[in-house]
Design a protein around this nucleic acid. Sequence first.
DNA 1: CAGTATCCTCCTCGATACTG
DNA 2: CAGTATCGAGGAGGATACTG
Lengths: 145, 145
Amino acid sequence: MNEQIGRIDGGMPADSALSVEAFLTPQGELPAASDCPVRDVLDRLGDAWSFLVVLRLAPAPMRFNALKRAVGGVSQRMLTVTLRSLERDGLVNRKVFPTTPPQVEYSLTQLGFTLVRPMAELTRWASDHHASVRQARAEYDAGAA
Amino acid sequence: MNEQIGRIDGGMPADSALSVEAFLTPQGELPAASDCPVRDVLDRLGDAWSFLVVLRLAPAPMRFNALKRAVGGVSQRMLTVTLRSLERDGLVNRKVFPTTPPQVEYSLTQLGFTLVRPMAELTRWASDHHASVRQARAEYDAGAA
DNA sequence: CAGTATCCTCCTCGATACTG
DNA sequence: CAGTATCGAGGAGGATACTG
């Protein structure tokens, strides 16, 4: 069912050009998220850590603690969990060097690299429009009061 | 595909839309997520509903229950919460028609439309690589057993 | 260094009931 | 139709302690 979904196109100013319908159920009956690729991806990338980890690994491979410091604010447990997830999804490579103390290097797989581009677009949007969002929030909150 | 990736590196920002470093803390010391635009955006879009709602509103405005059916699987409460969030962030417009019964129409703002494009890119990635991810998972799980 | 194991706490989210 | 209010279960995720 999800074979032809592509076709986002790339020229128009947003409202047309987007065959968004294809990603979603025509009648929206089913409650299941399992058959929707969008959901599947977002469930992974949704947690802030996955996104940031992939971004951080894009320039160069990194070891566990370096990554932990680089990401900032992530607990050891969550970083481990996140990396396992990404590894399982084939986005991240885990390479162990049997030295003492042990070294483990994480890097993006080829599949992982293909994600960097779209993620960077979103990141770019974030930096471009962050101010607008903040302002909109401020106005909304002001109006509510 | 990797040839593009080198430009991600912070070494040469130039015109690049993809200087990832800029969004992240140099030393990653601070635990706060507040100052990072990436986090800010992802926290919004992270919940599957926001993403799907924006996608659904891209082609045309929609009323509450139509949206609820279209998204599928979202509870009334979560849709309300999600829409309020998006409205607060200036991404969605809420227009009330004082009829009986009341009609409320939701649509994307101009700012909201600018998000559609990057979101569609990610969606596109999802549909393109969904199979690979599923396979990677299967292999990983097989190896674990 | 790079984890694993446990506990424990919020906080999200769904279910349900009520309203203009 | 389009919400709001309230409650309760469940899971995400932090803190801590231990290990190869």
